[in-house]
Amino acid sequence: MFLKRVELQHELIPSFNEYPFSIPSIKNLYQLDLTQNNVTFFVGENGTGKSTLLEAIADKCEFNTAGGGRNNYYGVHATESALGEYIRLSWLPKVTNGFFLRAESFYHFASHIDAVGAHDAYGGRSLHQQSHGESFLSLFLNRFNGKAIYLLDEPEAALSPQRQLTFLKILHDLVLSGDSQFIIATHSPILLGYPNATIFSFDNDTIKEIDYEMTDHYQITSYYLQNREKFLREILSD
């Protein structure tokens, strides 16, 4: 791994009553160690701070927080990180190559690639001329390579279950090369099942390592698939 630790510099924070420092998981963060595996997942309910922290890491890496790497210069309204200047990253060694995937603003990244005429770096075809899922896979296959850190915010947003499995194979091939690190915020029980990954839950007001089978994503999906009719009766009854 390249990125070893994320620290929140509490002494610099003006007030914990203001966003994003008012988010319980952020307020209670002091140090997050990333030394166990090349793949780390951030999981938790909406609003628990996982995307906020991932965006701050991207900002500190000097990636475009609208999505992209260090050399992708374009702007999208309201993509600045409010947390980035308050965290410290520890590296060994530090890398500058990588990418921040922000699913919600990927359209703007694709437009940027069209504007600069960089289609060849993404399979030779405009990302806008592919389906949403195809464009994500084109990014993964053509833009991702070795000695880099990849920060992915909900990459499953455009991927069918089958394409999520394809993504896992791409991820695994990069991990096997030994010089790629992934930090992924996700709601997908398929992606979370990647072998030997570290999973940090942002639920319950803290950031805590958790086993795959203990995640809500696994438990709710498993229960639903095994007890669909009963589950639907329970939640749809008046």
Rank of each mutant, 00 (worst) to 15 (best):
K4N: 12
R5T: 11
R5M: 10
R5I: 05
V6Y: 02
L8G: 09
Q9V: 09
H10Q: 12
L12K: 11
P14C: 07
P14S: 02
S15Y: 01
E18R: 08
E18M: 02
S22H: 04
S25I: 03
N37L: 01
N37Y: 09
F41A: 07
F42N: 07
V43R: 02
S51V: 01
T52H: 07
L54T: 07
L54V: 07
E55F: 00
I57A: 04
A58P: 07
D59C: 12
F63A: 06
G67C: 08
G67S: 03
G67V: 02
G67F: 06
R70T: 06
N71Y: 12
Y73V: 13
Y74P: 05
Y74A: 05
G75N: 13
E85T: 14
S90T: 15
W91P: 03
V95W: 08
T96K: 13
N97H: 13
G98N: 00
S105K: 11
S105R: 11
F109R: 05
A110Y: 00
S111T: 12
D114E: 13
G117P: 11
G117K: 06
A118S: 13
A118Q: 07
A118E: 11
H119W: 14
D120Q: 10
D120G: 02
D120A: 09
Y122Q: 03
G124V: 00
L127C: 02
H128E: 02
H128F: 11
Q129G: 14
Q130T: 12
S131I: 01
H132C: 02
H132G: 09
L137E: 00
S138C: 06
F140V: 06
R143D: 02
N145A: 11
A148H: 01
A148Y: 04
I149S: 04
L151P: 09
L152Q: 06
E154H: 11
P155A: 00
P155W: 00
A157T: 14
A157Q: 10
A157F: 13
A158S: 15
Q162N: 14
Q164S: 03
Q164L: 03
Q164F: 04
K169H: 12
I170R: 03
I170S: 06
I170P: 04
H172K: 15
H172D: 15
V175Y: 04
L176I: 09
D179M: 00
S180I: 00
S180L: 01
Q181V: 05
I190E: 08
L192C: 07
N196R: 12
F200M: 01
S201M: 01
S201Y: 00
D203S: 12
N204W: 05
D211F: 10
D216K: 14
H217E: 14
I220K: 10
L225F: 08
L225R: 07
K230Q: 12
S237E: 15
D238C: 09
